[in-house]
């Protein structure tokens, strides 16, 4: 790696304004985290799209397998009691 011309791939996450989560926007190539952040600034925030940047080397990112998505995500669909609309509230009650 030390003499390679291939820079590793980094995933870029941008917080667009205070109060919002960082959101994945894309990727880029950089030799180190410092330059990855600087490049992300120049590539992904040219129009003031962000106030904070995270970069993660793509190698270090682990994802759930879409093949497992049934097992992963469908069980929660039956847990309707987690949502407030599941409950009846008598008329006249507000702020709940």
């Amino acid at each position: 790696m030390s003499n390679s011309s291939d820079w590793p791939l980094w995933e870029v996450f941008i917080r667009s304004k205070q109060g919002l989560n960082h959101k994945h926007v894309g990727s880029l190539r950089a030799p180190d985290a410092q330059l990855a952040i600087e490049n992300a600034r120049d590539v992904y925030t040219r129009r003031s799209e962000g106030i904070s940047i995270w970069v993660v080397e793509s190698n270090n990112l682990f994802a759930s397998d879409p093949q497992d998505s049934d097992a992963f995500f469908e069980p929660s669909e039956s847990k309707v009691y987690r949502h407030p609309t599941f409950y009846d509230v008598p008329d006249g009650i507000s702020h709940m």
Binding site: W7, L28, R29, A30, E38, N39, D42, V43, R46
Partner: peptide
């Protein structure tokens, strides 16, 4: 020398 740096220099 690489696209990312092209953008940085132009900035």
């Amino acid at each position: 020398p690489i696209l990312e740096e092209d953008i940085a220099t132009t900035n």
